[in-house]
Every structure is written in structure tokens, then in C-alpha cells.
Nucleic acid binder design. Structure first.
Lengths: 148, 148
DNA sequence: ATGCAATTGCAAATCATTTGCAATAATAAT
DNA sequence: ATTATTATTGCAAATGATTTGCAATTGCAT
């Protein structure tokens, strides 16, 4: 099935260290998430994976996504829909602008968790695990189009 | 069914102005969301409503939630689960800390959208409709309990 | 090479939400 | 007040997203 990539070996190591097996299915899903440059949902990952390996099952995709999330190798994003999106763990903290017009996702880097820890008193004593912010609105293009 | 409340008349007005009817079912759902002090999900709203009006249907709850969201009378919150939570439109912008240990939700007021508009260059030209931030982690109590 | 436990595919189950439709009821017009 | 109009309701069935049980398969440590 899928084999080569720069990250493969380090992925294999991470899985094995966690007592997991490095299977072709998992390598494939990881690769697609990486290539996807963020923001694919489970079904889209499944469809793309299937093009390469037609016997792959949707359950395996879901199971893999869970595991990768657990091992902190992907982030699960919530855009206010009733399904989630996934992206490879990014190097720097960043967040997303979702355009309600065209669905486009714009990334912006911002160390929000660091900022909030300082700015919000309620954060004292709260052990932050993850900060997720999503901003919905209309991007430049769509904004122009809307006000006729 | 349900009848009196300080806000009833203003709700009725808002609905009627939007060409909607003010039905007992809708009044009931609105009341429960308000009493719920935020953070109820659709099913919990349904269960509580059913205690007062056993013939109410779940579809009506969903339909009402949609409508209230549309009319900007409730906010829909996304805590990274595969269902949503609802709260009556709050007076001041605030956000949520969700404890992964006990599920407790801690609110904090913070004018984040105003701040972000200034701090993030990518926001230029983006017409912000809604900002939602959720912070997951462990609250004071659970944090103590976890490190044994 | 071998054995055992982890993982897979498949189908069926479950959970969250939506929809079609005939019956009912809120509002506007009389 | 009565009536006509049309939105809304309850119910059951449909859909969409995710999870689970299980027998067959396959990684990986030995």
C-alpha cells in the first residue's frame, strides 16, 4: 500500500512507542491528512484514501483519527458543523477564519493561549489543555459580492 | 402550556415581527434555555421540556432552536463534541472553559472579537460575524485530583 | 519462521439531526 | 367573535455521522 515519506519513520516510532502498530492503512490516512493541508473531514479523508486503497473501510479511518488525536499527532477542528475536521499537528499555534459564503478557511498564527493566560483571571488554576477559536464571517471576496 | 414571564412579550414581539408565530412550544423551549443558564444540549432541552409538556416532540425542539439561532436569540456553542449546546443570547461577550475532568463549564467575559480585530492582520477585510473560543483543560478541583 | 495480540473490513447499531405529511392552531381580516 | 389563511406541530421515517461486535487478517517481538 502506501510506503515512503520523510515522516514515515518518525510516525512509526511514535506509534510503536505507544504500543500501537504501524499499518499501511494508518500510514495512508496520516499521509492524506498531511497532504490535505488541514481542514479535511473524516469522509473526505476516506474518499481520498479510497482512491489509493479501495479496500479501506470508513471505520478504520475513524479509528485512526481517534488514535492520532489521542497521540497528539493531529488536531480536531470544530467549525460549528455537525462533523469535525482534521489537520496534522502544526508547528506553531494558529487558528481559523471560516467564510460563511464560500467555505474557505483562512489560517492565522497567533499565540492565543499564552495571551489568554495572562489576560483572563478565570484561567488561574485552570490547566489549559487546548484552546480553539473559530471566527465565522465573510471573506473579502464574498463580502463584496454580498452587498449588491 | 407555559404562559407567564417577564420576557414573554418581548419574545412574542420579536417572533411576530419576523413573521413567526408565538406558540406555547416555542415559549417553553425559550424558557428552558433561559433557566438552563447556558450549556444545555438539544436532548437535555427536550427532556426538561417534556417534563412540563409531555406531548412536545423533539423535532419541534430542533426546529425552534434553528429559528432562535436565526433570529439571533440564542447562541449555539461547540465544545468539540458531536452535538451542540445552546444558551440565551448573553448581554456581554463571553466565552467558556470546559473541564475535561468533570464537564463543568466556567464562563469568562472577554471582548475577544474586538481584541482580535486589532491584533490579527488576517482579519482585515474579513467581516466578522461571530467569534467562538473554547478552552479545554482541567479545573482547579480536577487538576488536584489528577496528580495523585 | 512462529505465535499472539492488535487491527482490519464489514455489517449492523447507535446517536444527532432533518424531513414529509396530514392534522392542528396562531394570527389577520372580517 | 368567527372565519380563512397559512405557519407550525407531532409522528414516523429518512438521513448523516460515528461507533461497535466479530471473525479473519496481519504487525511485531521473540
Amino acid at each position: 500500500m502506501y510506503s515512503g515519506s520523510i515522516k514515515m519513520n518518525s510516525s512509526r516510532r511514535k506509534l510503536n512507542d505507544a504500543g500501537k502498530r504501524f499499518t499501511p492503512q494508518r500510514a495512508l490516512v496520516m499521509d492524506i491528512i498531511r497532504q490535505g493541508r488541514g481542514h479535511l473531514d473524516a469522509d473526505e479523508i476516506f474518499r481520498r484514501a479510497r482512491e489509493r486503497e479501495s479496500r479501506l473501510s470508513l471505520s478504520t479511518v475513524y479509528r485512526t483519527l481517534h488514535m492520532l488525536k489521542e497521540l497528539d499527532m493531529v488536531d480536531e477542528l470544530h467549525f460549528g458543523e455537525n462533523h469535525h475536521h482534521y489537520e496534522a499537528k502544526p508547528a506553531r499555534e494558529h487558528h481559523h477564519l471560516v467564510c460563511l459564503g464560500c467555505g474557505r478557511v483562512i489560517e492565522f498564527s497567533y499565540p492565543l493561549s499564552r495571551y489568554l493566560k495572562k489576560a483572563v483571571p478565570e484561567m488561574k488554576g485552570f490547566d489549559i489543555n487546548e484552546v480553539e477559536i473559530s471566527v465565522a464571517g465573510y471573506c473579502d471576496r464574498c463580502r463584496r459580492a454580498r452587498r449588491r
